[in-house]
Amino acid sequence: MIRKYGIKQLSIFLENRKGRLLEVTEALKDASINIRALALAESAEFGILRLVVNNPEKARSVLSSSGFTLKEQDVFAVEVPDEPGGFYNVVRILTENDINVDYTYAFVGGGKKAVLIFKVPSEMVEKALDVLSQGGITLVEPMFFYD
């Protein structure tokens, strides 16, 4: 399941410093990399920018050579109806199976669908994919994001 549904997210360490976000996005733009989904987590002093892009290998090498600290992180995505209770159904299944969510973010897809990206502890990924699939949740393959 992981092999089929694992998505390579790039996590980038950013100081809270003026212009730093601009520099990341500019590097990606110059390399013609398209950001498909993103989330930014912040603390008082620093942040972590999480990106799913159309070409993770290229993005990684571009950002690394621009001096950014980054890590490739396995996440997975599900598609739910864009209506009340869509997110709830996924969270309910994970909770019932004692799977802790490290973080999640979402975006609205086409055709009344929403896509949710999840990070769970690495030893729980396989189980999460299994129980979601059995619970009737649509898993999203990486090709949805990549070129």
């Binding site: 996590s11 360490f13 987590a41 912040e42 603390s43 620093f46 972590i48 999480r50 690394s64 600290t69 980054l70 890590k71 992180q73 490290d102 973080y103 990070k119």
Partner: peptide, 15 residues
């Protein structure tokens, strides 16, 4: 300096 070796993808881990 947080480099690729010490960077953990989580605010909690860094804190």
């Amino acid at each position: 300096e947080v480099d690729d070796r010490t960077f953990a993808d989580g605010i909690g881990a860094l804190e």
